[in-house]
Design a protein around this nucleic acid. Structure first.
Length: 821
RNA sequence: GCCGGAGUGGUGGAAUGGCAGACACAGGGGACUCAAAAUCCCCCGCUCGCAAGGGCAUGAGGGUUCGAAUCCCUCCUCCGGCACCA
């Protein structure tokens, strides 16, 4: 046998070769045969990657190499989502400046990616903390400000005490900060927002056009939360302006027996002043405002309210109804005010019962519901009654639109859509992010930084003391500026942008990373966008993916790109899990749980190819899979065997034409299987097919029944098909088989459908649907032949004894079913 | 509660209307070796049977079909999302 398989040496050799040749470089000025594939760019964390992270990149690299061999000019860039809290926290903890910390992490992480044999077009590398990058965040912000898409408002916002900053709605999970887990407080603050709600309809519509996992699309639809309804105006006797109410059931307007306002509603305070219960109301408003999100949203939370003593007019009945403040009315959904229809809405019902408010049913199925006997709201159903002109209208969408028409005709309101989606709060009271380019002038107000002054640089000579808050506030050199309008002394905005702004357009920047003249190269974007295949974790199902879709639309409206959906196809890889010795349970692999496996040691011992083979073989990539140390050894053994069969085939002469032989047929069948599996990312079954192929080759080498040419060609096919999974070993053999160019640059093998089959097939014979025998027949054997063979078969004959064949079902090359009586 | 996904040997999984368990891992047996490691070969769903062979089996129950892990209905369990959103 030839020399031993030395993966460490091969890793070194081929990683250097690929790098020296800049194999992954793509000229993006040319869009011919383009394929843009992208892994979500990572945060350069201070801890080393574990094999769970590795799955994402290995899968991406295998896809990249496969697409490339299939003949596409494939772009596979990499960059760094380099702003964010950990670097700043590290600075507070250890005094290392965030930039230095981040740069060091990037270098280490890059080396780790390289050691896995991952190929990226590093000529397009970018880092979001680079002023050459983040200046375009600022430029975009200014354009959005001009169009009213970026704005400042004072509102109750989410405050994370642990992170000491506000958060977007999307970053609050179950009332807690998604990062730190701290309970989120509600504070009234003046903050910067992006008007994503204006794009709600377009964001929903676009979901129909992308090839994404259904669950991600469902999550986004849920998050946007569209509902159709109407805005109805209620005249309030103490106020000049009527109060608008959003409802999805305007058809129940005649059943509205009270009006309820969120305590945060701007009219609430004014009502309190005019109310005889002024003091009590003010205290109630204060108490509700101070409650945490956790309390406000908890399911057990009591519905609490207070009568303002002021009345409104039900616009349909003309009756006087009381105006209440209620804690269950949310300030930032709809109009922050509701009409209470206790007969047909469970929440309103509970509220009405608690405070003795009247209940007035307007839908009846058989008998009229008795308000006094009701123990719960009556579902909408039957027909309307006690509803004037609408009486007799059956429940359904027609009733709703009839009501809207009626309301609009009388000027009492209008049809409207409601969304659960809130505007994106982008300001952060932290240092390590893009400075928001605004100036506060005592005379002129809040003004944009002029374009020519961009970028507003993040100062790097600041002190990190922790509890004192954003170091930018302490940096007089940063804060002190002059007003762009009057020239007088002014102060800079010290909030920075949510880092999700950075990641919402980076995929475009890979096309012109060094371009200091513009944010996006529209021509190249036209040629290369959208990203054909995006790969990343499910944790960004809403956050990053929603923001990126939004910003892409904004860029379209700015005329910079001509598309709405940046990511045509999305793939979410499943997590890697492992037994956690601490808890005894199988859990997601993570540093904090202490159940990580480092790829570094495995690479040092078995080489990168083994880690790649096992990672891809572990299971279907979209599902979570449990890491097993023993499984790694299996991958290693397989590569060893591949090495052995290649070594045995090395000395054989390359054959001329493919002759028809069992091995050739196996090769073509394997090409077909691997090609199809790779197309649906199922490298685990592709590897299984290659394992069978390898064994078939070993047997053919032993038997001596195959020609040298067939053996040698099979070895080359094996090496080609295995390349996306195990690039180092396969490049080595490709070279030793006499090829002068990279295997990576070879053409993916094509299969001949006529050869991707065997000549003889096993025909299953069933009697009454049960398998009773198997026949070895020639492919394409006609039914009478098969039937004759089955009748002649001794085993099958015993099942037919004394029976009459009533019917036969014949599926050529597969099965013969004899139905007997 | 609503929506989405999943449930197959000891384990990861394969098969998406036609041989259930490919390919691996673990386990058992053997070869090589003074021995060990490495490597290679064989066995490996449950059950009845000396064997030949039979029966059962893809969360549970029903249905469609010549034939169901796969399609339909009812239910159970687990995972994920949304949920006081008017």
């Amino acid at each position: 046998m030839a020399e031993k398989y030395d993966p460490i040496e091969l890793d070194r050799k081929w990683q250097r070769r690929w790098e020296d040749a800049r194999v992954a470089f793509v000229d993006t000025s040319d869009g011919a045969d383009k394929f843009y594939m992208l892994n979500m760019f990572p945060y350069p964390s201070g801890s080393r990657l574990h094999v769970g992270h590795g799955r994402n990149y290995i899968l991406g690299d295998a896809l990249y190499r496969r697409e490339r061999m299939a003949g596409r000019r494939t772009l596979n860039p990499m960059g760094w989502d380099a702003f964010g809290l950990p670097a700043e926290n590290a600075a507070i903890a250890s005094g290392v400046p965030p930039r230095e910390y981040t740069t060091g992490n990037i270098a280490r992480m890059k080396e780790q990616l390289r050691s896995l044999g991952l190929l990226y077009d590093w000529s397009k590398e970018l880092a979001s903390c680079d002023p050459a990058y983040y200046r375009w965040n600022q430029w975009l912000f200014l354009r959005m400000w001009e169009r009213g898409l970026a704005y400042r408002k004072t509102a109750p916002v989410n405050w994370c005490p642990g992170c000491r900053t506000v958060l977007a709605n999307e970053q609050v999970v179950d009332g807690r900060c998604e990062r730190s887990g701290d309970a989120v407080e509600i504070r009234d603050l003046t903050q910067w927002f992006f008007r994503i709600t204006e794009y709600a309809e377009r964001l929903l519509a676009g979901l129909e056009t992308v090839d994404w996992p259904e669950r991600v699309k469902v999550m986004q639809r849920n998050w946007i939360g569209r509902s159709e309804g109407a805005e109805v105006f209620f005249r309030v006797d103490a106020l000049a302006e009527p109060i608008p109410v959003f409802t999805t059931r305007p058809d129940t307007l005649f059943g509205a027996t009270f009006l309820a306002l969120a305590p945060e509603h701007p009219a609430a305070a004014r009502l309190a002043e005019r109310s005889p219960l002024s003091g009590d109301l003010a205290r109630f408003i204060e108490r509700v405002r101070r409650s945490s999100r956790l309390e406000r949203e908890s399911e057990t939370g009591e519905k609490e309210g207070m009568d303002t003593g002021i009345t409104a007019l039900n616009p349909a009945t003309g009756e006087t109804i009381p105006v209440w403040l209620a804690n269950f009315v949310l300030p930032d959904y709809g109009t922050g005010a509701i009409m209470g229809v206790p007969a047909h809405d469970q929440r309103d019902f509970e509220f009405a019962r608690r405070y003795g408010l009247p209940i007035r049913p307007v839908y009846r199925s058989d008998a009229e519901p008795d308000p006094d006997a009701m123990t719960a709201a009556v579902p909408h159903g039957g027909v309307l009654f006690r509803s004037g002109d609408w009486n007799g209208t059956p429940n359904g969408p027609a009733a709703v639109s009839k009501a809207i028409d009626w309301i609009e005709a009388r000027g009492l309101g209008r049809g409207r859509l409601g969304y659960r989606l809130r505007d994106w709060l982008i300001s952060r009271q932290r240092y390590w992010g893009t400075p928001i380019p605004a100036v506060h002038c005592p005379d002129c107000g809040v003004l944009p930084v002029p374009d020519e002054q961009l970028p507003v640089l993040l100062p790097e000579d600041v002190a990190f003391r922790g509890a004192e808050g954003n170091p930018l506030e302490q940096s007089e050199a940063f804060v002190a500026t002059s007003c762009p309008d009057c020239g007088g002394p002014a102060r800079r905005e010290t909030d920075t942008m949510d880092t999700f702004v950075d990641s919402s357009w980076y995929y475009l920047r890979f096309l012109n990373p060094g371009d200091s003249s513009r944010m996006v190269d529209s021509e190249r974007a036209a040629k290369w966008m959208p990203v054909d295949q995006y790969v990343g974790g499910i944790e960004h199902a809403i956050l990053h993916l929603l923001y990126a879709r939004f910003i892409c639309r904004v860029l379209k409206d700015l005329g910079l790109v001509d598309l709405e959906e940046p990511f045509a196809r999305l793939f979410n890889q499943g997590m890697i899990t492992k037994l956690n010795p601490a808890s005894g349970k199988i859990e997601k692999m993570s540093k904090s749980r202490g159940n990580t496996v480092s790829p570094d040691e495995l690479i040092a011992r078995f080489g990168a190819d083994t880690v790649r083979v096992y990672t891809l073989f572990i299971g279907p990539p979209e599902k979570e899979s449990e890491w097993s140390e023993e499984g790694v050894a299996g991958a290693w053994r397989f590569l060893q065997r591949v090495h052995d069969v290649c070594a045995r085939a090395e000395a054989l002469p390359a054959g001329e034409r493919a002759e028809d032989s069992p091995l050739t047929r196996l090769a073509h069948r394997t090409i077909q299987r691997v090609t199809e599996d790779a197309q649906r990312f199922h490298f685990h079954t592709a590897v299984a097919a290659l394992m069978e192929f390898q064994r078939g080759m070993a047997e053919a080498l032993d038997s001596g029944e195959e020609s040298p040419g067939a053996l040698r060609r099979a070895a080359e096919t094996l090496v080609q098909l295995l390349h996306p999974v195990a690039p180092h070993l396969t490049e080595e053999w490709w070279e030793r088989f006499g090829h002068r160019t990279f295997l990576l640059d070879s053409s993916w093998p094509a299969f001949d459908p006529a050869l991707a089959t065997t000549e003889r097939v096993t025909l299953v014979v069933q009697v009454n649907g049960k398998v009773r025998g198997r026949l070895d027949v020639e492919r394409g054997a006609p039914e009478p032949d098969a039937l004759a063979l089955a009748r002649a078969d001794e085993k099958i004959r015993t099942w037919l004894e004394g029976k009459e064949i009533a019917r036969t079902v014949y599926v050529p090359d597969r099965l013969l079913n004899l139905v007997v009586r």
